[in-house]
């Protein structure tokens, strides 16, 4: 296996939820709450996804970029590392790390296309400088394992070949990047949680299959609950809330 997850830096760097949910003191001073913090990160994950569509890179690049962005904010403040600069820079760095390179000069162009707001505008030079800071913040650990890798095997093994169900599962995995799950749980458990939800949703009985897996079903169920909670609360998120959170950072 290529770079076994269990021996990887990714595994060694998994966080506890409580560690991830620490708002940096500098941000706290500005009135950023944990909710704001999560909201901004979610918004940035969306931003990375939108930008990736423009520059046309694979989903895996998006996933890696979001993981980088989330790792950065376990260590750095949003006050010092403006999310609106960190997000595109993470995409740029991830595009290199995932061998799907994007030219730096394209980024400012597409950023402008996506957001007319001046607060999003950054020049190439600034992106390249931020790239170095991000590399350092990540301690140059650039390998991220994703649930995507184990998903096809699991689906096949579970005998799930209904295309709509497969698509639903993939969609769920994509959505997990709006949360911090990738920092906290081993990726294969995230994949299993998505299959678990999809099975429940489509009323496909996979209980026997799950029982035969030698994994801690409590963890899988907990991840599933987190995902469902997220969907629940997601409906209450409005653009105004996001803007308000950003305004606390940089009024």
């Amino acid at each position: 296996m290529a770079a076994n997850f269990w021996t990887s830096s990714h595994y060694k760097q998994l966080f506890d939820q409580e560690e991830v949910d620490v708002v940096h003191p500098l941000d706290k001073e500005k009135g950023i709450t944990l909710e704001d913090f999560k909201l901004i990160k979610m918004h940035m994950a969306n931003y990375i996804g939108k930008l990736a569509q423009q520059v046309k890179v694979r989903q895996r690049v998006v996933a890696t970029a979001v993981a980088y962005m989330r790792r950065v904010y376990t260590r750095k403040s949003m006050s010092e590392y403006d999310p609106r600069l960190v997000a595109p820079t993470c995409l740029y760095l991830a595009s290199k790390a995932e061998e799907s390179t994007v030219q730096a000069r394209l980024l400012p162009f597409f950023i402008k296309k996506l957001y007319s707001d001046d607060k999003y505008r950054y020049e190439i030079k600034e992106i390249l400088e931020m790239e170095m800071k991000i590399l350092e913040a990540l301690n140059y650990y650039l390998v991220v394992f994703h649930p995507y890798r184990s998903l096809p095997q699991f689906l096949q093994d579970a005998g799930i070949n209904d295309i709509t169900m497969i698509q639903l599962t993939w969609g769920l995995v994509n959505d997990t990047y709006r949360m911090d799950l990738i920092l906290i749980h081993p990726p294969h458990l995230i994949a299993l949680a998505c299959i678990y939800i999809a099975s429940a949703y489509r009323e496909k009985d996979t209980t026997a299959w799950f029982e035969e897996l030698r994994v801690d079903m409590n963890v899988v169920k907990n991840i599933s609950m987190e995902i469902l909670d997220f969907y629940e609360s997601h409906r209450l998120i409005t653009d105004e809330k996001v803007t308000a959170a950003f305004n606390k950072l940089k009024p």
Binding site: L93, K96, A97, T101, Q103, A104, I127
Partner: peptide, 20 residues
């Protein structure tokens, strides 16, 4: 300078960090 941190270095670092 146009493309920031060299991709060759990224490759080397990624690979070295995963090989023990």
């Amino acid at each position: 300078e146009r493309e920031g941190f060299p991709i060759t270095a990224i490759r080397e670092i990624k690979i070295l960090k995963k090989l023990h």
